[in-house]
Design a protein around this nucleic acid. Sequence first.
DNA 1: CAATAGTTTCAGAGAATTCTGAAGGTTCAC
DNA 2: GTGAACCTTCAGAATTCTCTGAAACTATTG
Lengths: 185, 185
Amino acid sequence: MSTDQLHEAELLAADAIGDIIEHWGFRKGLGRLWTVLFIAGEPLPAQAIGERLTMSAGAVSMSLTELQRWGVVHRVWRPGERKEFFEAETDFWRMISKVFDERERLLAGSVRGRLEKAVGLLQKAPQSPEVDRAVDRLNRLLAFVVVAQTALDGFIKSRQVDFTRFGDLVRFPLRALQSRRKGDQ
Amino acid sequence: MSTDQLHEAELLAADAIGDIIEHWGFRKGLGRLWTVLFIAGEPLPAQAIGERLTMSAGAVSMSLTELQRWGVVHRVWRPGERKEFFEAETDFWRMISKVFDERERLLAGSVRGRLEKAVGLLQKAPQSPEVDRAVDRLNRLLAFVVVAQTALDGFIKSRQVDFTRFGDLVRFPLRALQSRRKGDQ
DNA sequence: CAATAGTTTCAGAGAATTCTGAAGGTTCAC
DNA sequence: GTGAACCTTCAGAATTCTCTGAAACTATTG
């Protein structure tokens, strides 16, 4: 039965993506849910998602909320339909940018602030070779946080252009791969 | 007392870095431990770490093992000393590369394999517009995983050069910062 | 406005992760 | 070899995270 195989493939892929996502600090379930939506290729109602992944309505709802917060899933309203639909963001680049932005915004401020505070504390302490070296190192760490943030940001924001050398694979790779089938080689 | 302030600053910074690290999918404790070693600026015995962070010997040992596995902490043997010392890797770039490499190695194979398997499953299923579209999407996902990996890898490996515009801040900034103290200009 | 379909929220259950503390190694000095 | 100092391991404790299921809420329909 075709539906079973579709379903099995879906779960397999969802789990794989779930694992990636988990290694980047997200919940596995979020990756799985996004993948199901992505493979579906069209907006799905919450209930359908719950059925495919065997999740409770509550879990689906919470996950969808979080995915929307990250900008990787969008809510779709369909005239005439009572229920709501959800679709996966498919522009991988936009997705990643958003996630990075969010992480930056969330952390950079507080982290930077705290590191600066730590430096301040030390500089008020009586000078000593030990403290001096600690200040140097903290400053170095602080500098790195800033540089890394800038660099990552630049990378993320510039890549859309640079990626063209991959033949638009990132944004619209469908055509290029369409003809490759198992056993081709 | 200077030691108290050093200690307080240490904890503050350690916690900040711990938070960053946590958002990138690691245990907070690993970030904290690394930071203490980094600020110390010299190899420390396990016991000293435990005291500064109030961790049990077991936790310290386990954390050190993991940090070494990630290549961000090194074991140092000092002739004449019975205990062993641990020092933080200070080349941020090497650190990041290693971490990315590890993640890649760990996941890329399995993830790629599973996605390919999912595509294979679908391609054996009876053709239908729905299945065809699913195959397309899965292929696109697969392509992205590969591209992203390549791109990230390239970025990571090339950045060492590009970072020079930050005045070597990333690799060897110690000297540059050593003399700079608050009020220098 | 009552009934219904659908979604969100949240307390508590259950699962997973992380830490502790003790037992067991290992190394080195004597 | 024995004892001391130190590190590692690991079973179970403690903590944290995630999910469930039911109740509350919202929007739509008749």
